[in-house]
């Protein structure tokens, strides 16, 4: 009996650990793998590819003649060329060590300036032809009613409409360019982020677009975990100045919208409108969230 309980407890601990690893932020993102560097997950080896996330609990194996370049959360870069097995935890130390000082950055700049010849556009025009004089019309003319380039989302109702009102399909991808097509929505005049989140299930970074949008860049959707989302919201709410109830609700909505927590902002705008139903500012602020 005691043995069975121990096994169940061990299983629970393992389940909790694996769940927490799902929820955790990535420690590194793989930038380049010249060979067959792999990460080991549950005893299985998975070849790393550009864009893969590495968690602090992961372990990686680098074979001979392989270069692996990782990007840290602070955007510094760690390059691994030597054969061996590395734990991500130990590599994390390299990220913090590689922060640059003002002096080293200055002397790097001096060295770079000394060692690079100064050319002129007149002599080498091909090197100076990055600028072009033409407008891009890669896509169409749909413009979202809300500034939805970035959306931070965990739960709650959130629909985003566009103008001109036209039923088009929406597509959700795994990456900003190319990437796997994860979801194709039915033609509609808006996108329901809550429904997308329900289909995606996993927290993480996603990219979406509507067919015919003006800006060819995909929009960023970050699905947060409950804990990190609540922490972020609490932090924002701390900055809200208390005035009247309606005003406070509006200000909260405004601050949340500024930080792209649109679903949460919508709730507070609605609250402000409920408290002062004749206020035109509250009305128009909330109306934008109505597709």
């Amino acid at each position: 009996m005691g043995n069975t309980i121990n096994k169940i407890l061990l299983l629970l601990v393992l389940v909790c650990l694996s769940l927490s690893s799902f929820a955790a932020e990535p420690a590194f993102i793989v930038f380049y793998n010249s060979g067959k560097a792999v990460k080991t997950v549950s005893g299985k080896s998975i070849i790393l590819k550009k864009g893969d996330n590495l968690l602090s609990t992961d372990q990686i194996n680098i074979p001979e003649q392989t270069q692996l370049v990782l990007v840290c959360a602070n955007f510094s870069v760690v390059q691994l060329k030597t054969k061996g097995i590395y734990t991500i935890k130990t590599l994390l130390a390299k990220c913090s060590k590689e922060t640059t000082s003002a002096s080293s950055a200055y002397f790097k700049y001096i060295w770079h300036s000394f060692s690079h010849a100064h050319t002129a556009p007149e002599k080498d025009p091909r090197a100076y032809m990055q600028t072009y004089g033409a407008a891009s019309r890669g896509r169409g003319t749909l413009i979202t009613k809300l500034n939805a380039d970035t959306i931070n989302y965990y739960n709650g109702s959130l629909s985003i409409g566009w103008l001109p009102t036209k039923a088009v399909k929406t597509e959700v991808y795994s990456a900003a360019t190319d990437g796997d097509l994860l979801i194709t929505g039915k033609p509609a005049t808006y996108i329901k982020i809550d429904s997308i989140a329900a289909q995606l299930k996993k927290s993480g970074s996603y990219f979406w677009e509507m067919q015919g949008q003006q800006n060819p860049k995909r929009k960023y959707l970050k699905l947060w975990t409950k804990a990190s989302y609540q922490t972020a919201i609490t932090k924002i709410l701390k900055g809200v100045v208390a005035t009247s109830s309606a005003e406070k609700a509006y200000l909260t909505g405004f601050m949340l919208e500024e930080r792209h927590f649109l679903g949460e902002a919508s709730k507070y705008y609605q609250k402000a409108l409920q408290l002062e139903s004749n206020n035109q500012i509250y009305k128009s602020a909330f109306a934008r969230f109505t597709p």
Binding site: P121, P125, Q130, T131, A134
Partner: peptide, 11 residues
């Protein structure tokens, strides 16, 4: 024809 000009980026 290429629409590119010659100059520094954003210059």
């Amino acid at each position: 024809g290429y629409a590119n000009f010659v100059g520094e980026e954003e210059g």
